[in-house]
Design a protein around this nucleic acid. Sequence first.
DNA 1: CAAGCAGTTTAGAATCGATCTAATTTAAGA
DNA 2: TCTTAAATTAGATCGATTCTAAACTGCTTG
Lengths: 140, 140
Amino acid sequence: MRAKKTSTADLTVLERLRSSGLRPTRQRLALAKLLFSQGDRHVTAEALFNEAKDNRVDVSLATVYNALHDFTEKDLLREISIDSSRSYFDTNVGDHYHFYFETSGRLMDIPAERIAIANLPEAPGGAEVARVDVIIRIKD
Amino acid sequence: MRAKKTSTADLTVLERLRSSGLRPTRQRLALAKLLFSQGDRHVTAEALFNEAKDNRVDVSLATVYNALHDFTEKDLLREISIDSSRSYFDTNVGDHYHFYFETSGRLMDIPAERIAIANLPEAPGGAEVARVDVIIRIKD
DNA sequence: CAAGCAGTTTAGAATCGATCTAATTTAAGA
DNA sequence: TCTTAAATTAGATCGATTCTAAACTGCTTG
Ligand SMILES: [Mn+2]
Ligand SMILES: [Mn+2]
Ligand SMILES: [Zn+2]
Ligand SMILES: [Zn+2]
């Protein structure tokens, strides 16, 4: 492990981890920086792992999975199931929906205001709604 | 393989396969009968495979997957991705949405009329919308 | 109704995303 | 600095799904 100057972005990310109750380890800091310093993103574990490698962030695949799940648990990320073959993680945790481009596997945000959902039926037995997912699949 | 009287349900299913251009093999007939003779269903490959075994339908797991995909291609089924760990196949191919009960993994239909979606944004670049999926996840 | 053959089935191997294990390392408080 | 719980890791393992390639079968032809 090499010493490194602490930038503003690093600080933001560090605070973010601390206030979530996650230890700011070297690996989590590096991954969080990749995830949260480029606007809203939708990444797979594999993609993030490769991105880490490209940026000389030395981290194991298991740690990428651990971090993605830890971040999701702390609401820094949200997990999206679109394709039964893999999971996406979304850095936009606010209320919004998605376009899914079937051939490229890419996701694009749709702000919640841009879709009006009415008459949403209440859950049977009064159970709690965890989330409403709307996915517009695009044949491209 | 044992000879067996052809019932009305068998006939329906047989016609259904024929008119889809699928050869009505013993395996497809048996699986189609399980799938389409009990109202709307949401099944996984594994579940259908076990159901077949329980009903003394001798069929391999590979054939269950083949049939589910063949049926889906012919619009006799629709595939739903909800959980990244497995695929569901829906015998209701009409326009409708779903409740998903997270602990049991069960799906329940919501008729299209019961949700009003307005202002649906058009796909970027005028691409074609393949489908709009709405999943209401229930924490139970 | 036999033959031919494309379409189908199948057992078992292989794939692949994801998770687990158990050993090592590290963050952080005392 | 010491201690300890938390985190990381390489590699094994898991489980749903797909693939392979050999055997079988529904259907058309002669
Ligand atoms: Mn997950
Ligand atoms: Mn599929
Ligand atoms: Zn998003
Ligand atoms: Zn349904």
